[in-house]
């Protein structure tokens, strides 16, 4: 039993569901039939949510976090960017060795998916997914192309802003989170029905990655910084738990 493991065992902080998007958000039409109508049953975390899967560095390939090169070995077309940041918990501590997976459209806004019929062409050298494990301080990094905006059948003329989908684990299954990263200055952010499922303006701001010139590489690529915050854990000794749990 290591010290870091023992620290990571406390009950999870409660989720602020007014900060997250509500389930039923009619501006985003698909949510209307996929949102539960009955109240959630309040439970709080148990061992079932405070434990979670662990992933090893042996499963990560050398190019897994390089979406420009990981599909065919030939470079993808588009604006080269580094996407980097840290996975933290609500206590501000880095979350080490956790799996971060991303997926996205290509530079023209087209996904490599049979259901995406958008006329922008596929890039033969772009697959669109990547993964990495965070370092000891929770840091992660991807090299990719900036995805294009694309239209989708919601309102007559709905367009998604440029975005990268992100999936993160944490140390407990109850921390599991999927979200989307948007890009500083994109005027489509304010118009997007999916972005606007979030009610609070500062919560939307938390999904917008700033341009990070300090991490850009001259004559090579720009950079965007995106920190991801997962639910924290209580660390009090005064938990109502049976000895040995």
């Amino acid at each position: 039993m290591t010290l870091s493991n023992s620290i990571d065992r406390g009950p999870l902080f409660f989720r602020d569901r007014d900060w997250h998007p509500a389930a039923y958000t009619p501006g985003y039409k698909t949510s209307m039939t996929r949102a539960p109508f009955r109240p959630l049953v309040s439970l709080g975390s148990t061992l079932s949510e405070e434990t979670g899967p662990a992933f090893g560095h042996s499963m990560i390939g050398e190019l897994d976090n390089n979406l420009i090169m990981n599909f065919t070995g030939q470079p993808a077309i588009g604006e080269r960017i580094i996407m980097h940041g840290r996975v933290l918990d609500e206590n501000g501590r880095g979350v080490p060795n956790t799996l971060v997976e991303i997926w996205q459209a290509n530079a023209g806004g087209r996904y490599r998916h049979k259901k995406d019929g958008y006329q922008a062409p596929l890039d033969p050298n772009f697959g669109g997914c990547g993964r990495t494990l965070t370092g000891p301080d929770g840091a992660y990094e991807f090299l990719t192309v900036r995805p294009g905006a694309y239209p989708w059948p919601n309102h007559v003329n709905s367009w998604r802003p440029m975005h990268i989908h992100i999936s993160v684990f944490g140390s407990g299954f109850g921390q599991r989170l999927i979200t989307q990263m948007y890009f500083e200055g994109d005027p489509l952010i304010a118009k997007c029905p999916i972005v606007n499922t979030i009610g609070q303006e500062n919560a939307i701001e938390a999904l917008v990655a700033p341009l990070d010139m300090n991490r850009a590489i001259p004559m090579d690529c720009l950079a965007y910084k995106f920190d991801i915050v997962l639910r924290g854990r209580r660390q009090s000794f005064f938990e109502n738990r049976t000895e040995g749990l």
């Binding site: 902080f13 997926w103 998916h113 697959g127 669109g128 997914c129 999927i178 499922t197 991801i228 924290g232």
Partner: peptide, 27 residues
């Protein structure tokens, strides 16, 4: 305290990211 990163839908193409081989994106 920091605030948890707000969630967004996984969207229609979640399999590209999470099960690419099953979707038909091998390699």
């Amino acid at each position: 305290y920091l605030k948890e990163t707000p969630s967004q839908t996984a969207g229609p193409y979640v399999h590209i990211g999470l099960t690419p081989n099953a979707l038909g994106i091998p390699g």
